[in-house]
C-alpha cells in the first residue's frame, strides 16, 4: 500500500467518526424510557393517550393561534365530550402540575426545546 500512514490515519478518523454512537455509549447506564409523572386528580386527558402523545405539540400550537389571533377560548373534546379552556397554564398544567417531571422528561431525552416557556411561566417552577 502506498502512503500507508496518511491513508490509515484518514481511515481511522472515518471509523472513529462513524462508530461514534457505538463507542460513546460504552460504560453508560442502559437507556430507559423516561417515566412520566401521572396526574393525581384526573383520569383522562382532553383527548386519548395515543392522540396526545403524537399531536400535543400541534394542538398547543393551534390553541395558541386560536386564542391569540381569533379569540376562541373553548376547546370541545370529541373524546370526553367536555369543554376545556385552551390554556397551557390553566388546563394542561392544572393536572400535569410538574413541568420537570412531565414535559421535560421526554423533551430532554430527545433534545427538543419547545419555546412555550419563552412566554409562559411554570407556576411550580416560580415558587421553587
Amino acid at each position: 500500500m502506498y502512503d500507508k500512514g496518511k491513508i490509515l490515519t484518514g481511515l481511522a478518523v472515518f471509523v472513529v467518526f462513524m462508530t461514534y454512537p457505538f463507542w460513546n455509549n460504552i460504560g453508560r447506564a442502559a437507556y430507559v424510557k423516561p417515566e412520566l409523572e401521572k396526574p393525581r386528580m384526573a383520569k383522562e386527558c382532553v383527548e386519548n393517550v395515543e392522540y396526545m402523545r403524537a399531536e400535543h405539540m400541534a394542538m398547543l400550537n393551534e390553541w395558541r393561534d386560536e386564542v391569540v389571533r381569533n379569540g376562541m377560548h373553548e376547546y370541545h373534546s370529541s373524546f370526553t365530550h367536555q369543554t376545556y379552556a385552551k390554556s397551557l397554564t390553566k388546563t394542561c398544567l392544572k393536572c400535569h402540575e410538574n413541568k420537570d417531571k412531565f414535559c421535560d422528561k421526554c423533551h430532554t431525552s430527545v433534545a427538543v426545546s419547545p419555546y412555550c416557556w419563552d412566554c409562559h411561566v411554570d407556576p411550580k417552577g416560580v415558587k421553587q
Binding site: 455509549n25 437507556y31 424510557k33 421526554c106 431525552s109 430527545v110
Partner: peptide
C-alpha cells in the same frame, strides 16, 4: 410516530 419508542429502539441498537 412514537418518538420515545424510536429512541428506545435506536439506543438499544447501539448499546
Amino acid at each position: 410516530v412514537d418518538i420515545m419508542a424510536v429512541k428506545e429502539l435506536t439506543m438499544g441498537l447501539v448499546t
